[in-house]
Design a protein around this nucleic acid. Structure first.
Lengths: 176, 176
DNA sequence: ATAACGCGGACTGTATTGATCCCCGTTACG
DNA sequence: CGTAACGGGGATCAATACAGTCCGCGTTAT
Protein backbone atom coordinates (compact mmCIF):
# COMPACT_ATOMS: atom_id res chain seq x y z
CA UNK A 1 0.00 0.00 0.00
CA UNK A 2 1.65 3.13 -1.17
CA UNK A 3 0.61 6.76 -1.08
CA UNK A 4 -0.47 6.64 -4.73
CA UNK A 5 -2.70 3.58 -4.77
CA UNK A 6 -3.55 0.95 -7.36
CA UNK A 7 -6.84 2.76 -7.91
CA UNK A 8 -4.83 5.54 -9.51
CA UNK A 9 -2.85 3.01 -11.51
CA UNK A 10 -6.03 1.40 -12.84
CA UNK A 11 -7.51 4.81 -13.60
CA UNK A 12 -4.52 5.94 -15.63
CA UNK A 13 -4.34 2.70 -17.60
CA UNK A 14 -8.03 3.01 -18.43
CA UNK A 15 -7.64 6.61 -19.49
CA UNK A 16 -4.74 5.57 -21.70
CA UNK A 17 -6.89 3.03 -23.51
CA UNK A 18 -9.66 5.60 -23.86
CA UNK A 19 -7.14 8.01 -25.36
CA UNK A 20 -5.94 5.40 -27.84
CA UNK A 21 -9.30 3.97 -28.93
CA UNK A 22 -10.40 7.16 -30.59
CA UNK A 23 -13.74 8.32 -29.34
CA UNK A 24 -15.41 4.96 -28.97
CA UNK A 25 -17.21 4.58 -25.67
CA UNK A 26 -15.79 1.70 -23.65
CA UNK A 27 -17.71 0.14 -20.78
CA UNK A 28 -16.12 -0.46 -17.40
CA UNK A 29 -16.47 -4.21 -17.97
CA UNK A 30 -14.65 -4.00 -21.29
CA UNK A 31 -11.86 -1.94 -19.78
CA UNK A 32 -11.52 -4.37 -16.90
CA UNK A 33 -11.45 -7.52 -18.99
CA UNK A 34 -9.16 -5.95 -21.55
CA UNK A 35 -6.59 -5.22 -18.85
CA UNK A 36 -7.11 -8.23 -16.62
CA UNK A 37 -8.26 -6.27 -13.59
CA UNK A 38 -11.29 -6.60 -11.32
CA UNK A 39 -14.50 -5.38 -13.05
CA UNK A 40 -16.34 -4.64 -9.83
CA UNK A 41 -13.45 -2.70 -8.40
CA UNK A 42 -12.98 -0.72 -11.57
CA UNK A 43 -16.68 0.12 -11.44
CA UNK A 44 -15.94 2.05 -8.23
CA UNK A 45 -13.09 4.01 -9.77
CA UNK A 46 -14.49 5.29 -13.05
CA UNK A 47 -17.35 7.28 -11.48
CA UNK A 48 -14.73 9.31 -9.62
CA UNK A 49 -13.15 10.28 -12.91
CA UNK A 50 -16.58 11.22 -14.18
CA UNK A 51 -17.37 13.42 -11.19
CA UNK A 52 -14.01 15.14 -11.65
CA UNK A 53 -14.93 15.93 -15.25
CA UNK A 54 -12.11 13.87 -16.73
CA UNK A 55 -14.34 11.39 -18.52
CA UNK A 56 -17.90 11.55 -19.74
CA UNK A 57 -20.29 8.70 -18.97
CA UNK A 58 -23.08 7.46 -21.18
CA UNK A 59 -25.70 5.35 -19.44
CA UNK A 60 -27.82 2.54 -20.79
CA UNK A 61 -27.14 -0.19 -23.36
CA UNK A 62 -24.08 0.53 -25.50
CA UNK A 63 -23.07 3.04 -22.91
CA UNK A 64 -19.60 3.57 -21.55
CA UNK A 65 -16.92 6.17 -21.00
CA UNK A 66 -15.13 8.70 -23.19
CA UNK A 67 -12.46 11.27 -22.41
CA UNK A 68 -14.15 14.55 -21.55
CA UNK A 69 -11.31 16.54 -23.12
CA UNK A 70 -8.16 15.95 -25.19
CA UNK A 71 -5.58 13.72 -23.52
CA UNK A 72 -3.02 16.53 -23.69
CA UNK A 73 -5.21 18.53 -21.29
CA UNK A 74 -5.41 15.80 -18.66
CA UNK A 75 -2.52 15.96 -16.20
CA UNK A 76 -1.41 13.18 -13.91
CA UNK A 77 -2.04 15.47 -10.97
CA UNK A 78 -5.67 15.89 -11.95
CA UNK A 79 -6.09 12.13 -12.14
CA UNK A 80 -4.44 11.52 -8.77
CA UNK A 81 -6.57 14.20 -7.13
CA UNK A 82 -9.73 12.86 -8.75
CA UNK A 83 -9.15 9.39 -7.30
CA UNK A 84 -7.56 10.17 -3.96
CA UNK A 85 -9.11 13.52 -3.15
CA UNK A 86 -5.97 15.59 -2.51
CA UNK A 87 -4.88 13.45 0.41
CA UNK A 88 -1.91 15.11 2.13
CA UNK A 89 1.59 13.64 2.11
CA UNK A 90 1.94 14.43 5.80
CA UNK A 91 -0.64 14.86 8.53
CA UNK A 92 0.81 17.24 11.14
CA UNK A 93 -0.20 16.33 14.69
CA UNK A 94 0.99 19.68 16.08
CA UNK A 95 3.39 18.05 18.49
CA UNK A 96 5.03 21.43 19.01
CA UNK A 97 2.10 22.55 21.15
CA UNK A 98 2.33 19.63 23.57
CA UNK A 99 5.63 20.55 25.21
CA UNK A 100 5.45 19.86 28.95
CA UNK A 101 6.84 23.32 29.70
CA UNK A 102 3.79 25.01 28.18
CA UNK A 103 1.19 23.34 30.34
CA UNK A 104 -2.22 23.64 28.76
CA UNK A 105 -1.80 26.78 26.69
CA UNK A 106 1.31 27.02 24.51
CA UNK A 107 2.74 30.51 23.95
CA UNK A 108 1.94 32.15 20.64
CA UNK A 109 5.52 32.03 19.42
CA UNK A 110 5.29 28.23 19.61
CA UNK A 111 1.84 27.73 18.13
CA UNK A 112 1.50 30.53 15.59
CA UNK A 113 1.84 30.11 11.84
CA UNK A 114 2.74 26.80 10.25
CA UNK A 115 4.87 24.29 12.14
CA UNK A 116 8.40 24.46 10.70
CA UNK A 117 8.51 20.70 10.22
CA UNK A 118 5.12 20.75 8.56
CA UNK A 119 6.37 23.48 6.25
CA UNK A 120 9.20 21.27 5.03
CA UNK A 121 6.75 18.48 4.27
CA UNK A 122 4.39 20.85 2.48
CA UNK A 123 7.27 22.00 0.32
CA UNK A 124 8.12 18.39 -0.57
CA UNK A 125 4.48 17.72 -1.37
CA UNK A 126 4.40 20.81 -3.55
CA UNK A 127 7.45 19.57 -5.46
CA UNK A 128 5.79 16.20 -5.98
CA UNK A 129 2.55 17.76 -7.19
CA UNK A 130 4.39 20.10 -9.52
CA UNK A 131 6.13 17.13 -11.08
CA UNK A 132 2.82 15.31 -11.56
CA UNK A 133 1.24 18.41 -13.05
CA UNK A 134 3.92 18.59 -15.73
CA UNK A 135 3.03 15.23 -17.26
CA UNK A 136 -0.14 14.76 -19.27
CA UNK A 137 -1.99 11.70 -20.42
CA UNK A 138 -1.23 12.82 -23.96
CA UNK A 139 2.50 12.53 -23.33
CA UNK A 140 2.14 8.89 -22.35
CA UNK A 141 -0.27 8.17 -25.20
CA UNK A 142 2.24 9.57 -27.70
CA UNK A 143 5.00 7.46 -26.23
CA UNK A 144 2.78 4.42 -26.54
CA UNK A 145 1.97 5.24 -30.14
CA UNK A 146 5.67 5.29 -30.93
CA UNK A 147 6.60 1.96 -29.41
CA UNK A 148 3.52 -0.13 -30.27
CA UNK A 149 3.52 -1.74 -33.76
CA UNK A 150 0.83 -0.54 -36.18
CA UNK A 151 -0.66 -4.02 -36.29
CA UNK A 152 -1.45 -3.82 -32.60
CA UNK A 153 -3.91 -0.97 -33.05
CA UNK A 154 -5.82 -3.05 -35.57
CA UNK A 155 -6.01 -5.85 -33.05
CA UNK A 156 -7.45 -3.46 -30.50
CA UNK A 157 -10.13 -2.39 -32.95
CA UNK A 158 -10.98 -6.01 -33.72
CA UNK A 159 -11.21 -6.86 -30.05
CA UNK A 160 -13.53 -3.95 -29.34
CA UNK A 161 -15.70 -4.76 -32.35
CA UNK A 162 -15.96 -8.37 -31.27
CA UNK A 163 -16.88 -7.26 -27.78
CA UNK A 164 -19.69 -5.05 -28.95
CA UNK A 165 -21.01 -7.76 -31.25
CA UNK A 166 -21.09 -10.25 -28.41
CA UNK A 167 -22.81 -7.87 -26.03
CA UNK A 168 -25.60 -6.80 -28.31
CA UNK A 169 -25.69 -9.19 -31.29
CA UNK A 170 -26.35 -12.32 -29.34
CA UNK A 171 -27.90 -12.11 -25.94
CA UNK A 172 -26.34 -13.18 -22.70
CA UNK A 173 -24.05 -16.02 -23.68
CA UNK A 174 -20.54 -14.91 -24.69
CA UNK A 175 -18.58 -17.41 -26.80
CA UNK A 176 -20.60 -20.42 -25.63
CA UNK B 1 -2.54 7.90 7.94
CA UNK B 2 -0.39 9.59 5.38
CA UNK B 3 2.65 8.55 3.40
CA UNK B 4 4.98 10.28 5.85
CA UNK B 5 3.77 8.88 9.16
CA UNK B 6 3.62 10.21 12.70
CA UNK B 7 6.66 8.10 13.49
CA UNK B 8 8.66 10.46 11.30
CA UNK B 9 7.02 13.44 12.97
CA UNK B 10 7.95 12.16 16.43
CA UNK B 11 11.48 11.37 15.26
CA UNK B 12 12.08 14.85 13.88
CA UNK B 13 10.72 16.57 16.98
CA UNK B 14 12.99 14.42 19.15
CA UNK B 15 15.99 15.19 16.99
CA UNK B 16 15.16 18.87 17.25
CA UNK B 17 15.23 18.73 21.03
CA UNK B 18 18.48 16.79 20.92
CA UNK B 19 19.94 19.47 18.66
CA UNK B 20 18.87 22.22 21.03
CA UNK B 21 19.88 20.65 24.35
CA UNK B 22 23.54 20.73 23.57
CA UNK B 23 25.20 17.37 23.94
CA UNK B 24 23.28 16.15 26.93
CA UNK B 25 22.00 12.61 26.54
CA UNK B 26 18.21 12.48 26.77
CA UNK B 27 16.39 9.23 27.44
CA UNK B 28 13.44 8.11 25.33
CA UNK B 29 11.19 8.51 28.37
CA UNK B 30 12.32 12.08 28.90
CA UNK B 31 11.80 12.92 25.26
CA UNK B 32 8.35 11.36 25.31
CA UNK B 33 7.16 13.06 28.46
CA UNK B 34 8.66 16.37 27.44
CA UNK B 35 6.63 16.33 24.24
CA UNK B 36 3.48 14.64 25.46
CA UNK B 37 3.77 11.58 23.25
CA UNK B 38 3.62 7.86 23.98
CA UNK B 39 6.83 6.64 25.69
CA UNK B 40 6.42 3.04 24.55
CA UNK B 41 5.80 4.03 20.98
CA UNK B 42 8.75 6.40 20.94
CA UNK B 43 10.89 3.56 22.28
CA UNK B 44 10.24 1.77 18.97
CA UNK B 45 11.28 4.76 16.88
CA UNK B 46 14.57 5.91 18.37
CA UNK B 47 16.45 2.62 17.76
CA UNK B 48 15.75 3.10 14.04
CA UNK B 49 17.54 6.44 14.16
CA UNK B 50 20.40 4.75 15.97
CA UNK B 51 20.74 1.96 13.39
CA UNK B 52 20.75 4.60 10.66
CA UNK B 53 23.65 6.34 12.38
CA UNK B 54 21.74 9.55 13.02
CA UNK B 55 21.87 9.34 16.81
CA UNK B 56 24.21 7.57 19.20
CA UNK B 57 22.75 5.52 22.04
CA UNK B 58 24.25 5.09 25.48
CA UNK B 59 22.93 2.14 27.45
CA UNK B 60 22.54 1.71 31.18
CA UNK B 61 21.65 4.15 33.95
CA UNK B 62 22.01 7.78 32.91
CA UNK B 63 21.98 6.56 29.34
CA UNK B 64 20.11 8.14 26.46
CA UNK B 65 20.54 9.55 22.99
CA UNK B 66 22.76 12.17 21.37
CA UNK B 67 23.04 13.36 17.81
CA UNK B 68 25.70 11.32 16.03
CA UNK B 69 26.75 14.32 13.92
CA UNK B 70 26.04 18.05 13.67
CA UNK B 71 22.41 18.95 12.99
CA UNK B 72 23.42 20.72 9.80
CA UNK B 73 24.53 17.36 8.40
CA UNK B 74 21.23 15.59 9.08
CA UNK B 75 18.77 16.00 6.23
CA UNK B 76 15.03 15.41 6.42
CA UNK B 77 15.38 12.79 3.73
CA UNK B 78 17.81 10.79 5.85
CA UNK B 79 15.38 10.89 8.76
CA UNK B 80 12.41 9.81 6.64
CA UNK B 81 14.39 6.95 5.12
CA UNK B 82 15.70 5.88 8.52
CA UNK B 83 12.14 5.55 9.87
CA UNK B 84 10.22 4.34 6.83
CA UNK B 85 12.90 2.42 4.97
CA UNK B 86 12.68 4.12 1.57
CA UNK B 87 9.10 3.07 1.02
CA UNK B 88 8.04 3.89 -2.54
CA UNK B 89 5.46 6.54 -3.38
CA UNK B 90 3.89 4.20 -5.93
CA UNK B 91 3.87 0.42 -6.20
CA UNK B 92 3.58 -0.50 -9.88
CA UNK B 93 1.46 -3.60 -10.47
CA UNK B 94 2.65 -3.94 -14.08
CA UNK B 95 -0.88 -3.74 -15.44
CA UNK B 96 0.59 -3.13 -18.88
CA UNK B 97 1.53 -6.82 -19.15
CA UNK B 98 -1.97 -8.10 -18.46
CA UNK B 99 -3.61 -6.92 -21.69
CA UNK B 100 -6.03 -9.58 -22.96
CA UNK B 101 -4.52 -9.35 -26.43
CA UNK B 102 -1.16 -10.61 -25.22
CA UNK B 103 -2.38 -13.86 -23.73
CA UNK B 104 0.16 -15.26 -21.32
CA UNK B 105 3.35 -13.75 -22.68
CA UNK B 106 3.33 -10.02 -23.43
CA UNK B 107 5.55 -8.84 -26.30
CA UNK B 108 8.84 -7.28 -25.36
CA UNK B 109 7.85 -3.84 -26.61
CA UNK B 110 5.10 -3.87 -23.97
CA UNK B 111 7.03 -5.31 -21.04
CA UNK B 112 10.56 -3.99 -21.51
CA UNK B 113 12.09 -1.14 -19.58
CA UNK B 114 10.15 0.84 -17.00
CA UNK B 115 6.38 1.27 -17.34
CA UNK B 116 5.75 4.79 -18.66
CA UNK B 117 3.22 5.47 -15.92
CA UNK B 118 5.61 4.16 -13.30
CA UNK B 119 8.30 6.47 -14.72
CA UNK B 120 6.08 9.50 -14.11
CA UNK B 121 5.55 8.45 -10.50
CA UNK B 122 9.25 7.81 -10.00
CA UNK B 123 9.99 11.29 -11.26
CA UNK B 124 7.48 12.77 -8.81
CA UNK B 125 9.01 10.75 -6.01
CA UNK B 126 12.45 11.97 -7.02
CA UNK B 127 11.24 15.58 -6.86
CA UNK B 128 9.82 14.98 -3.40
CA UNK B 129 13.01 13.36 -2.14
CA UNK B 130 15.14 16.13 -3.61
CA UNK B 131 13.06 18.67 -1.71
CA UNK B 132 13.46 16.74 1.53
CA UNK B 133 17.20 16.39 0.97
CA UNK B 134 17.58 20.17 0.75
CA UNK B 135 16.37 20.82 4.28
CA UNK B 136 18.51 19.92 7.28
CA UNK B 137 17.70 19.57 10.94
CA UNK B 138 20.09 22.47 11.51
CA UNK B 139 17.90 24.77 9.41
CA UNK B 140 14.92 24.10 11.63
CA UNK B 141 16.97 24.34 14.80
CA UNK B 142 18.25 27.77 13.74
CA UNK B 143 14.72 28.92 12.99
CA UNK B 144 13.64 27.74 16.43
CA UNK B 145 16.53 29.55 18.08
CA UNK B 146 15.38 32.78 16.46
CA UNK B 147 11.74 32.64 17.51
CA UNK B 148 12.05 31.15 21.00
CA UNK B 149 12.74 33.64 23.82
CA UNK B 150 16.09 33.25 25.62
CA UNK B 151 14.27 32.51 28.86
CA UNK B 152 12.79 29.39 27.34
CA UNK B 153 16.16 27.71 26.90
CA UNK B 154 16.85 28.19 30.59
CA UNK B 155 13.54 26.54 31.37
CA UNK B 156 14.54 23.57 29.23
CA UNK B 157 17.80 23.23 31.13
CA UNK B 158 15.98 23.38 34.43
CA UNK B 159 13.49 20.77 33.33
CA UNK B 160 16.23 18.39 32.23
CA UNK B 161 18.21 18.93 35.42
CA UNK B 162 15.15 18.27 37.51
CA UNK B 163 14.45 15.14 35.51
CA UNK B 164 17.93 13.73 36.03
CA UNK B 165 17.79 14.55 39.74
CA UNK B 166 14.51 12.72 40.10
CA UNK B 167 15.69 9.66 38.19
CA UNK B 168 18.94 9.18 40.07
CA UNK B 169 18.88 11.30 43.21
CA UNK B 170 15.80 9.77 44.74
CA UNK B 171 14.66 6.34 43.68
CA UNK B 172 11.45 5.44 41.95
CA UNK B 173 8.98 8.03 43.19
CA UNK B 174 8.83 11.21 41.08
CA UNK B 175 7.50 14.31 42.87
CA UNK B 176 5.66 12.26 45.55
C1' DA C 1 22.71 -5.54 44.08
C1' DT C 2 19.56 -2.41 42.39
C1' DA C 3 17.27 0.30 39.20
C1' DA C 4 17.48 3.04 35.17
C1' DC C 5 18.48 2.60 30.63
C1' DG C 6 18.29 0.77 25.46
C1' DC C 7 16.73 -3.25 22.52
C1' DG C 8 13.72 -6.45 20.56
C1' DG C 9 9.74 -9.49 20.00
C1' DA C 10 4.87 -10.53 20.58
C1' DC C 11 0.69 -8.66 20.76
C1' DT C 12 -3.76 -5.60 20.23
C1' DG C 13 -6.99 -2.33 18.14
C1' DT C 14 -8.29 0.53 14.44
C1' DA C 15 -8.32 2.70 9.85
C1' DT C 16 -7.54 2.18 5.08
C1' DT C 17 -7.28 -0.38 0.94
C1' DG C 18 -8.67 -3.67 -2.42
C1' DA C 19 -12.49 -6.18 -3.78
C1' DT C 20 -17.30 -8.25 -4.02
C1' DC C 21 -22.29 -8.13 -4.14
C1' DC C 22 -26.81 -6.20 -4.65
C1' DC C 23 -30.23 -2.96 -6.10
C1' DC C 24 -31.72 1.01 -8.58
C1' DG C 25 -32.50 4.33 -12.64
C1' DT C 26 -31.34 4.83 -17.42
C1' DT C 27 -31.14 3.58 -22.23
C1' DA C 28 -30.72 1.08 -26.62
C1' DC C 29 -32.35 -2.74 -29.24
C1' DG C 30 -35.46 -6.30 -30.62
C1' DC D 1 -42.73 -2.35 -24.66
C1' DG D 2 -40.02 -5.56 -22.38
C1' DT D 3 -35.56 -7.10 -21.82
C1' DA D 4 -30.85 -6.74 -20.94
C1' DA D 5 -26.82 -4.00 -20.98
C1' DC D 6 -25.09 0.00 -18.96
C1' DG D 7 -23.56 3.53 -14.92
C1' DG D 8 -24.10 4.78 -9.81
C1' DG D 9 -24.21 4.05 -5.03
C1' DG D 10 -24.47 1.59 -0.68
C1' DA D 11 -23.34 -2.47 2.38
C1' DT D 12 -20.16 -5.66 3.25
C1' DC D 13 -15.67 -8.30 3.77
C1' DA D 14 -10.74 -9.67 4.06
C1' DA D 15 -6.09 -8.24 4.24
C1' DT D 16 -2.77 -5.12 5.46
C1' DA D 17 -0.42 -1.31 7.73
C1' DC D 18 -0.21 1.84 11.30
C1' DA D 19 -0.32 3.46 16.19
C1' DG D 20 0.31 1.86 20.50
C1' DT D 21 1.14 -1.56 24.50
C1' DC D 22 3.43 -5.13 27.15
C1' DC D 23 7.05 -8.09 28.59
C1' DG D 24 11.65 -9.83 29.02
C1' DC D 25 16.67 -9.39 28.17
C1' DG D 26 21.38 -7.39 28.45
C1' DT D 27 23.91 -3.31 29.89
C1' DT D 28 25.65 0.08 33.12
C1' DA D 29 26.10 3.81 36.69
C1' DT D 30 25.32 4.36 41.58
Amino acid sequence: MAHITVSVEYAIHCLLWLAISDDRALSSRDLAEFQGISPTFLAKILPKLEKAGIVGAHEGVRGGYRLARPASQISFLQIVDAIEGEKPLFDCQEVRRRCALYGDCPPKWASGGVCAIHAVMLQAEKAMRASLALQSLGDIAMRFNRIAPAKFFDEIDEWVDERMAIRTGRSGKPEA
